[in-house]
Amino acid sequence: MSEANSMNLISALSQEELQAIDAEIAHVPYRDAVAIDALKIVQAHRGWVSDESLSAIAAHLHMSADELDGIATFYNLIYRRPVGDKVILLCNSISCWIKGCDNLQQRITEELGVELGETTSDNRYTLLPVTCLGACDKAPVMMVGDELHEDLCEESIIRILGGSTTP
């Protein structure tokens, strides 16, 4: 890739993003070692990682977009497709399953009209399953955005989701 070309690609990233990525690069012996951090930084700013962002990050890390995409698509918390304003991570691992997470999922689906993997039409939520959240004593649990919600029941779910949708 020519220098000009790569500068062009990189310009898709904001100064803030680039600074954050460069701060990570300072900790590691190889530039491309921060691939995952960089994807997360960009995702934190934009909600997801578009093809354009991916190519920009790759150019900035001196790696190919192909290789970076291999990394991005490996990890379930890097979103390569747009997600809603908040991602609901519903734990469906064993302890939550014992405590009825399947029913909760159904309830969420009824309430928001989305199945696992889908985003609400108002773009508020994307519903995803997640591995055991390490809060099994408070099962069933889910995360909405960065917040953990414990001891869920059908009522609390509606409250939480309804609650966070009111501006």
């Binding site: 190919s64 192909d66 995409d69 698509t73």
Partner: peptide, 19 residues
């Protein structure tokens, strides 16, 4: 080569290009 990669994981692993 740099433009062929293993993508995705578990039984969805895919070998191809980014585009």
């Amino acid at each position: 080569g740099t433009d062929l990669a293993a993508l995705a994981s578990h039984d969805h692993v895919y070998f191809g290009r980014h585009q």
